[in-house]
Design a protein around this nucleic acid. Sequence first.
DNA 1: ACCACGCTTGGTAATATAGCCAAGCGTTTT
DNA 2: AAAACGCTTGGCTATATTACCAAGCGTGGT
Lengths: 116, 116
Amino acid sequence: MKPLIAPSRERFEERAAIMKALAHPSRLMMIHELGHGERCVNELTELVGSDMSTVSKHLLILKKNGIVQDEKRGKQVYYKLRTPCVLNFFNCMESMIYANKSVSQHSAGETAKQKA
Amino acid sequence: MKPLIAPSRERFEERAAIMKALAHPSRLMMIHELGHGERCVNELTELVGSDMSTVSKHLLILKKNGIVQDEKRGKQVYYKLRTPCVLNFFNCMESMIYANKSVSQHSAGETAKQKA
DNA sequence: ACCACGCTTGGTAATATAGCCAAGCGTTTT
DNA sequence: AAAACGCTTGGCTATATTACCAAGCGTGGT
């Protein structure tokens, strides 16, 4: 019996999968947009400016990871956030970036490759 | 309603870079561990169970993205979290996963009646 | 001085990701 | 019924990521 139980590798893999699904600018953009309400693929395609097939694949990734859900109505497929708490990640990122910028006077954010 | 200014693509790219740095089980594992205090590469290597060179490269990725910072003391290099707020991501992921699991009890396709 | 240690970096191969175009499929419109 | 529409999927190429081993480099110990 350990007093502290470190999360298992599987749990980290589960979490990494979610992070990975979020780790793309277009997908973050779409999530942000979906934070304002449901959108059809056409609208999202216009938003991110890629081919619709690309957008559709991004949406599939988000769906597979439980971030969005879809619903077909007429000719269109509408996507919406499955759990609004995904938007909390944006807050996390905001504070991360803010913190980084205030610290970055020092030496980080750079590759410390001081080969002269 | 005042039109919302959507964050620019650059901002989403900035954020995606951070997410990407976090999107690997070993890196999440190390971050979690560093949440308990600083660790040298050796300790982290033992923790994740990969080759030390692999771990070192993971740490470089975290460093480049402002998530950790390093300090050489004697023969070892100690890493620590640069901003503890990165740990908030774990909470986000927890609630995401929890929410996903509780939603997936219900069928995801039966949402048609919410339409007015 | 020399060697052992701790870590980083270069090299390389396997795998994964992202993008576009083309084709397919179901629904709606004409 | 046929055409148009909205979206998804298959195919492909280019690029990125990850892992290991081997080699290099600075520090500490003997």
